[in-house]
Write a protein that binds this DNA or RNA. Sequence first.
DNA 1: TGCTCATTTGGCAATATAACCAATCAACAA
DNA 2: TTGTTGATTGGTTATATTGCCAAATGAGCA
Lengths: 107, 107
Amino acid sequence: MSKAINMALINEKARIFKALGHPTRLMFVEKLAGGECCVCELVELAGVDFSTVSKHLSILKEAGIISDDKRGKKVFYRLSFICVTGFMECIETSLRKKLDTDSLMFV
Amino acid sequence: MSKAINMALINEKARIFKALGHPTRLMFVEKLAGGECCVCELVELAGVDFSTVSKHLSILKEAGIISDDKRGKKVFYRLSFICVTGFMECIETSLRKKLDTDSLMFV
DNA sequence: TGCTCATTTGGCAATATAACCAATCAACAA
DNA sequence: TTGTTGATTGGTTATATTGCCAAATGAGCA
């Protein structure tokens, strides 16, 4: 493997980060880390339009972070990218350390 | 700790992901993971304008991912967010698995 | 002081993203 | 078949991002 930069790989990785780089989508990922749920639940969680939720989900799916499964009239999504969980914990720990004087503490 | 969603925390996390969600910035982070370097080196690496590089760096800095250090006429940046490295390795592993039939292999 | 070099900032145009509404689709029920 | 529910797609508008150029800044040197 040469030292040359693999742009295809970089782009793919950036796409994953970009997909996670929106509060609503990140919220979905954290919710799905606790188990699959249907689109309707996520709509309620996010408090935005059905169409908006659907578009966010397709971005996460395109990036390979979640996968879907249609059962009956409902579509269920689940987390399919394990890496996220560990990273999220690490971020959370450093953020809490850094921000515990802020308004973050009355959660 | 209640189950209520901590939006401030979510937003902050999303900002980190968003900052990493651009090929050029991700390239910088990977480069800086191997040790600090000056803006001029990153300009050469990215092949874009000095001003563009500077703006990308300030986004990473705002997100708390990198920090800077002016020495003489040059400004040096270094990775200040350790979480990234482990996550990147995890992503890389799963991406390589998934994409090894693609054009990624003649790196 | 005045001059460079390395970097940042401001401004602009092109492009991308996000959210809404309306229309469509797919599965099931009546 | 027709209607209903859950979800996706298309279209539009507002906003954000990206990257360039030009101008400004700031540290060190003559």
